[in-house]
Design a protein around this nucleic acid. Structure first.
Lengths: 120, 120, 120, 120
DNA sequence: GTGGTCTAGACCACC
DNA sequence: GTGGTCTAGACCACA
């Protein structure tokens, strides 16, 4: 894992875990790696992983069984997708539209660029 | 002006000033508000505005006449457009495409949303 | 059995066993379930039940016959009642009174709620 | 501030701040002490206070202005009271009633004890 | 000055 | 073994 500088490491770990849940690498109701295992694997301080797990637990995406470990909540994958979609629709999409308007790029250009990309 | 949490306030002010230059509210060769005026207007600490002006001066978008104030550089609007376009093509566009792929939103949906928005 | 997060599981089991003794489900001088049985029944790690039994043995509420099992001590029910009463009077009651004062709930409301509950 | 051992320090600080908000020591929309100030005052590590503030921010009881400090949210006092009341009604009250039933203490005794306490 | 993040390391309760 | 909490200290971005 390469860490961009812009985002805090613990949030990048959050994103990564969310990705693993969506793609089914971490399955619902199943255990995810222990804090220390995952910290060693990512070559990060254990406290950083604690913070990521803590964040996800607050969002009900994972839950904890005391002394046993963390588990993916039921419906976590859906929840993540819904949350991301909402965020996208509410903020990012509008910013994007404002941006292309300001830069005077037509929506047709965007479509073309998108299709070109996917042909590669 | 509402400040998002994600971006530093001084960069949000930079964006705003760039917008004013592009749309001609702040015209080339003309003076922009003093640091204190603008800070008062935006309800922001003066040092924050200093930082924004400083950033813009470094990019040659505005320049300073000592004891008089800050002025918009010649060709600033074009410069901004070019810079933004580059940034947009290199980074934002790709991020955007990745995002819609991940969220399984088709490009056609995007087009539709864009058109709906502009009808309002 | 649902385990609250606030209290350690083994203490919740202790409480449960005490309740069973008071209400006569587990009778004095009689055998209580084996560690493994009870662990399986509660869907809990066996070591956790060991810890609960250990705790109760220290308080002379149960005792062990080697190779046979755990038994409820004579006078256990009374002992539990006395211990709980003391604890209740010394700590819990005061906490409770402080709480209702802070929340501005009158003692009359409490009485009413209590009576309603028992009518159901 | 004396710290009981049972509850984590950062949660005790959370409780304390909530108390200050309810009683109006920390007023809505006003700034609360900086992390470092409060840590020094409570003779606690700054990170511990960070954790408390973080918790309260997640609950929308305080909010942060970047580089300036933390402020009490509008409606924080009400929110705290409502949250506590709910918790009390849902969990603590029932536990309390179960307890007095199990200990065979009548509700009238409770009322009397409550009145005696307040006479002192 | 403010908070935000991260590290390293410790000790504890719990399963 | 697991996570939870706390300390001490560092460096950074931001206002």
């Amino acid at each position: 894992m390469d860490f961009k500088e812009s985002k805090p490491i613990y949030m990048q770990i959050v994103d990564r875990i969310c990705g693993e849940i969506i793609t089914g690498v971490f399955k619902e109701e199943e255990r995810i790696p222990s804090v220390r295992e995952y910290a060693a694997y990512l070559e990060v301080n254990a406290n950083t992983v604690v913070r990521s797990y803590d964040f996800l637990q607050n969002k009900d995406i994972i839950f904890n069984k005391r002394g046993i470990g963390y588990f993916v909540s039921q419906g976590a994958a859906d929840k993540i997708l819904i949350m991301r979609r909402e965020l996208f629709m509410k903020e990012q999409l509008n910013d994007f539209f404002n941006e292309i308007d300001m830069l005077k790029i037509s929506i047709d250009e965007i479509v073309e660029l998108y299709k070109n990309r996917n042909q590669q």
